[in-house]
Lab assay of single mutants.
Amino acid sequence: RQGFVPAAYVKKLDSGTGKELVLALYDYQEKSPREVTMKKGDILTLLNSTNKDWWKVEVN
């Protein structure tokens, strides 16, 4: 499932696989259909980080 999360809630990881991955630093509950819920410690695939406030991710 793809959607947006606050950029301040995730940290980029060095995956070494060519995929950009991020680590969820905090729990986040989606507040609109365009967002996704994540739990602290989740590893997500980063799809787009051009917006400084909201990053598009895919929940694996």
Rank of each mutant, 00 (worst) to 15 (best):
R1G: 05
R1Q: 07
R1A: 06
R1F: 06
Q2S: 11
Q2G: 06
Q2I: 13
G3I: 04
G3M: 06
V5K: 01
V5R: 00
V5C: 04
P6C: 06
P6S: 02
P6W: 04
P6F: 05
P6H: 02
P6D: 01
P6M: 04
P6I: 04
P6N: 03
A8K: 15
A8Y: 09
Y9D: 02
Y9T: 06
V10G: 01
V10N: 00
V10D: 01
V10A: 03
K11P: 01
K11A: 11
K11I: 14
K12C: 08
K12H: 08
D14A: 13
D14E: 13
D14Q: 11
D14V: 13
D14H: 13
D14F: 14
S15Y: 13
S15N: 14
S15K: 11
S15W: 14
S15M: 14
G16L: 13
G16K: 13
G16M: 13
G16V: 14
T17F: 13
T17N: 15
T17R: 10
T17K: 12
G18S: 11
G18F: 10
K19P: 14
K19T: 12
K19Y: 10
E20G: 10
E20R: 15
E20Y: 11
E20H: 14
L21V: 08
L21T: 09
L21N: 05
L21H: 08
V22R: 01
V22L: 09
V22T: 02
V22H: 04
L23R: 09
L23A: 05
A24Q: 00
A24H: 00
A24Y: 01
A24E: 00
A24N: 00
A24V: 08
L25D: 01
L25C: 07
L25V: 07
Y26P: 00
Y26W: 10
D27M: 03
D27K: 03
D27H: 06
D27N: 08
Y28A: 01
Y28K: 00
Y28F: 07
Q29W: 11
Q29M: 12
Q29F: 13
Q29S: 11
Q29V: 15
E30Y: 05
K31P: 04
S32D: 10
S32V: 04
P33Y: 09
P33D: 12
R34N: 14
E35S: 07
V36N: 02
V36H: 04
V36Q: 03
V36C: 08
T37Y: 04
T37H: 05
M38A: 02
K39D: 04
K39F: 10
K39V: 08
K39P: 01
K39E: 06
K40D: 02
K40F: 05
K40I: 06
G41T: 02
G41E: 02
G41Y: 05
G41K: 02
D42C: 06
D42W: 11
D42V: 04
I43K: 05
I43E: 03
L44W: 04
L44T: 01
L44P: 00
T45R: 14
T45Y: 12
T45N: 08
T45D: 05
T45V: 15
L46T: 00
L46Y: 02
L46G: 01
L47D: 01
L47A: 02
L47N: 02
L47W: 04
L47R: 04
N48Y: 06
N48T: 07
N48H: 07
S49K: 09
S49T: 10
S49I: 07
T50G: 09
T50Y: 09
T50R: 11
T50I: 08
T50W: 08
N51G: 09
N51C: 09
N51K: 06
K52Q: 11
K52Y: 08
K52V: 12
D53N: 14
D53T: 15
D53F: 15
W54T: 02
W54L: 03
W54H: 03
W54R: 03
W54G: 00
W55Q: 01
W55C: 02
W55G: 00
V57Y: 01
V57L: 03
V57M: 01
V57S: 00
V57F: 01
V57D: 01
E58T: 06
E58A: 10
E58N: 04
E58G: 07
E58Y: 06
E58P: 00
V59F: 09
V59D: 06
N60T: 13
N60Y: 14
N60L: 14
N60Q: 13
N60H: 14
